[in-house]
Design a protein around this nucleic acid. Structure first.
Length: 464
RNA sequence: GGCGCCAUAGCCAAGUGGCUAAGGCAGGAGCCUGCAAAGCUCUGAUCCCCGGUUCGAAUCCGGGUGGCGCCUCCA
């Protein structure tokens, strides 16, 4: 497996801490609103990484957190009059529903920040003891000057860069960040701690939860791969890395991976720009699997400029896989073809080269169709082809539905009956060579959004 | 202002020193079909511009131009 490490800025051979095992931490959402397509892409990217590593024979432990305490959540509480728990549990449920619809496997560990406060407090105490953190009023800040390697991760914090950080006279260094935010007033959300009531800063949660839930005992603060959106590189991941170095003397992750953005008209999708496209809204128009395939089909480090034309093009590509599956209907899969499997794994094993992988899939589909055109009865081949589809399905998380159902999604039973009736009527018309009538029926179906195709096995239909 | 990423056919997108620059969508021609659809076959770019290194560059170096991102919450 080769991975582009965004800290080293090059593709590296992946060597896990423990043979045949991998620990992955992907930064999850702050649960104050519904997930947008950017969250979806990040989720899908690391889901793919996980599946590929599993396919390569690794035992993967995958963790994704929920940030359920944060300024934005508190703001939402104040606006809505709801409790913290009401808000966060709602958006956690919504997030998981959306990700399920996109075929994202549930993480092995899904911790919430508020359930890991002890671990955070422990780490903050340890940082205070080591002189890497300091108290100002009720707040506690991390002293970035105490970490000799601060900025070694992102290499993005020279003085000119940092001059943009809002000046805060209480901090010793401009890049210092809050580990603990002391309670400001009665309306604030506060937790007890040895350093007074307050709540944790954002960065500490990842370091602490990794230590608590994911790291091996002999490398208690370290994992193999840490992932997240490119916007988290600095300062979030830089800060995580600094805390962990100071608290544990270890690098937090051996490999850092960052996915590119989903953009709209070339601009990053974000709340502040007001151009967010929510997953729930996208799901009203497009099936989750189609969305997944689309978001998956651009290499994870590239930005993906969301537009309907490309989405439709992705859908058509996926349709072709399902049409082949339809031709193999009822066939029991045998063994996946060795060359196919190897070609897929080689592509994906090279820093998740999805374009190459999909070209392997496309070529397989084409060759299989060609072969079935020539000889529709090749039993052994059909079984292998079916096994190939199952294999690419589990690897990419697509193509696993029933092939007929895929093309008939969202059509109710009554309509289905009507379609069948019209197809029968057309069949009779064709038999009696009344092609005008047959064509009129075909047109009627088309008006209903139904395409039909005559095959040796009879007429089949698809939703357009 | 600092730092960084990107620029390949109408669109999406691999390839990062050397055979004919992958693959998909759209378009065109054909096979198949009563006609279609589906499927298959054939069909398109010298790689943003300029200069350099090299026997040889889309691929390396320098300089432009354009787009985007991070430095404030952000996947």
């Amino acid at each position: 497996m080769k991975i582009f490490d965004s800290s080293k800025k090059r593709v590296c051979d992946f060597k896990p801490l423990k043979e045949k095992r991998v620990t992955i931490y992907a930064c999850g959402p702050t649960v104050y609103d519904d997930a947008h397509l950017g969250h979806a892409r990040s989720s899908i990217v690391f889901d793919l990484l996980r599946r590929v590593l599993m396919a390569l024979g690794y035992e993967v432990t995958f963790m994704k957190n929920f940030t359920d305490i944060d300024d934005k959540i508190i703001k939402k509480m104040r606006q809505s009059g709801k409790s913290l728990e009401e808000i966060t549990s709602h958006y956690i449920r919504r997030y998981l529903e959306d990700m399920d619809a996109l075929g994202v496997l549930r993480a092995d560990i899904e911790p919430k920040a508020t359930e890991s406060l002890e671990a955070m407090i422990d780490m903050i105490e340890s940082l205070l003891k080591k002189g890497c953190a300091y108290k100002i009023d009720g707040d506690i800040y991390f002293d970035t000057s105490k970490d000799g390697r601060y900025c070694s991760l992102s290499q993005r914090c020279d003085e000119e860069s940092l001059s943009r950080i809002e000046p805060n006279p209480k901090k010793r260094n401009p890049a210092d960040f809050a580990l603990w935010k002391g309670c400001k007033d009665e309306k604030d959300v506060c937790f007890d701690s040895p350093f007074g009531p307050g709540r944790p800063g954002w960065h500490i949660e990842c370091s602490a939860m990794i230590k608590k839930h994911l790291a091996y005992p002999d490398t208690p603060c370290q994992i193999d791969i840490h992932g997240g959106g490119a916007d988290l590189f600095f300062p979030h991941h830089e800060n995580e890395a600094a805390q962990t170095r100071c608290a544990c003397g270890q690098e937090l992750a051996c490999y850092w991976m960052h996915n590119g953005f989903v953009t709209i008209s070339g601009e990053k999708m974000s709340k502040s720009l007001g151009n967010s496209f929510f997953v729930k809204d996208a799901l009203k128009v497009y099936d989750g699997e189609i969305l997944r395939f689309y978001l998956l089909s651009t290499h994870y480090r590239q930005n993906l400029n969301f537009n309907e034309e490309d989405l439709l093009s992705s859908k058509k590509r996926l349709d072709k896989i399902y049409r082949l599956k339809k031709r193999l209907y009822g066939v029991k899969p045998s063994q996946v073809q060795k060359e196919f499997k190897e070609a897929l794994l080689e592509a994906l094993g090279n820093d998740l080269n999805i374009s190459k992988a999909l070209s392997v899939v496309d070529e397989f589909v084409k060759e299989a169709n060609e072969r079935l055109d020539k000889n529709p009865k090749e039993k052994e081949f059909k079984k292998e082809a079916m096994a190939n589809i199952e294999y690419l399905g589990s690897l990419l998380g697509i193509g696993q539905k029933d092939a007929y159902e895929y093309f008939q999604m969202g059509i109710d039973d009554e309509t289905k009956k009507r379609i069948e009736a019209l197809i029968n009527e057309r069949k009779e018309a064709k038999k009696s060579k009344d092609f005008n009538k047959a064509d009129a029926i075909r047109e009627e179906l088309r008006q209903m959004g139904i395409a039909i195709m005559d095959t040796p096995q009879g007429t089949v239909w698809e939703k357009i």
